[in-house]
Amino acid sequence: MSTIETRGLTAHYGDFQALFGLDVTLRSGETTAIIGANGAGKSTFMKAITGLIKTAPDMIHIDGAPAGGRDAHTIISQGIAMVPEGRRLFPSLSVEENLLIGTHAKRSGPWSLDRVYDVFPVLKERRRLSGTSLSGGQQQMVAIGRALLSNPTTLLCDEISLGLAPVVIEELYRTIAELRSEGLSIVIVEQDVARAVRVADQVYCFMEGRVSLSGAAQDIALEDIRNAYFGI
């Protein structure tokens, strides 16, 4: 189990500053929802946590130890895996190979190829097809399965419902809830505010690279979120 903390997290794209001193705590075993409008810095935050954007060492702490600025593969080997926005499957690889690439983190744990196929049986049927030939929902399953095969303790899900049919979204969120019940820490970046708050233990609302609202999901009124979301 990992508790991830950011302390005064900043991030830049060249001269453009995307994050302005974020203090966020992603508690072990909980589901955290990060919401906000487009350009609020949600995906940048996820990239910073997973090492895809370099930060100063003391801006990110994993279980109390500084972890900012580490390479992405090092972060994953510490048990933090991401399901990226847009799935980012590898077009040259089959479904199965896309899943197996997740084992490069070399972490031991409960997740195996068999178990991923148990959770997503449709992937087993289509394991020899190109990963990118699947429907959007099935591709999302591959992306989740690939992340799980690194045997993470924290799963970061960036916009997993984007562009998917409501029935598929329901299925994915059922799976997320099951993972949560097994003790996995989940972080969800989501545009669908109501859904995110429904599944979350705690909520952070970002606006223009800053935290505009945070707290336990049960204590936050949708009206407060709306105000924080739009900055009114």
């Binding site: 895809l52 990226p84 980012r88 590898f90 040259s92 197996l100 690439i101 690194s150």
Partner: peptide, 25 residues
Amino acid sequence: SRYGLALTAIRDSERASASVGVDTF
């Protein structure tokens, strides 16, 4: 080998490979 799989993934997208645990460098 498993490195071949990782190389193919790097060819497709280096950034995505790094994000799933491949030590691309």
